[in-house]
Amino acid sequence: MPEVTSHQSSQNAVLAFFDVDNTLMRGASVYYLAKEAWHRGIVGWRDIARFAWQQFRFISVGENHKHMASARERALAIVGGHSEKTLFELAEQIYERDILPNLWPETVDLAKEHLAKGHEVWLVTATPQFVAEVIAARLGLTGALGTRVHAKDGVLTGELDGHVLHGPEKAAVATELAERLGADLAECWAYSDSSNDIPLLTAVGNRVAVNADAKLTNHAQKLGWQILPLNRASLKEARRRVKRQAKTVRKRGRQ
Rank of each mutant, 00 (worst) to 15 (best):
S10L: 05
R72Q: 15
K222M: 07
E120C: 01
E179V: 01
R240P: 04
L230I: 12
G162Y: 13
A37R: 08
T147P: 06
A209S: 10
W189N: 02
A220G: 13
E179M: 04
R252P: 03
H219W: 15
V79S: 04
A37L: 08
V173H: 00
Y31P: 09
R74K: 14
E169N: 02
A34C: 14
I99C: 10
K66Q: 13
L33K: 13
D98N: 08
L90G: 00
D184I: 03
L33W: 10
G205R: 00
I48G: 08
F130D: 05
A49Y: 03
A214L: 12
F18R: 10
I94V: 12
L160G: 06
Q226L: 01
L177F: 04
P229Y: 04
W45T: 11
E176V: 01
E36R: 15
W104R: 13
L139A: 09
R26M: 05
Q255W: 11
Q221C: 01
L165G: 03
V208E: 05
E73A: 13
G81Q: 12
K112A: 06
A209V: 11
F130P: 05
E113M: 13
W122L: 07
K247N: 02
N22Y: 05
V173W: 02
V61M: 05
Y95S: 06
V79K: 01
G41M: 04
S6H: 15
S194R: 07
A75W: 02
F58S: 14
A71Y: 02
T202Y: 09
R207Q: 15
A220Q: 09
A77K: 14
T248H: 08
K251W: 15
S29I: 07
V14E: 07
E89T: 14
T202A: 10
L139C: 08
W122Q: 06
V30Y: 02
N231K: 05
I94S: 03
N64G: 09
A116P: 01
A126V: 11
N64L: 11
N12M: 05
V208R: 05
H166P: 00
W189K: 02
L90R: 02
H7A: 05
L230T: 14
T175V: 03
L145N: 09
K85S: 12
L115M: 06
C188V: 08
R72Y: 13
G224F: 14
V121S: 00
A136E: 11
V30C: 10
S10I: 07
A186I: 01
T5G: 05
K236E: 13
V108D: 12
F51H: 08
Q226V: 04
I94T: 03
E3S: 10
H219F: 15
A16V: 01
K112C: 04
R239M: 08
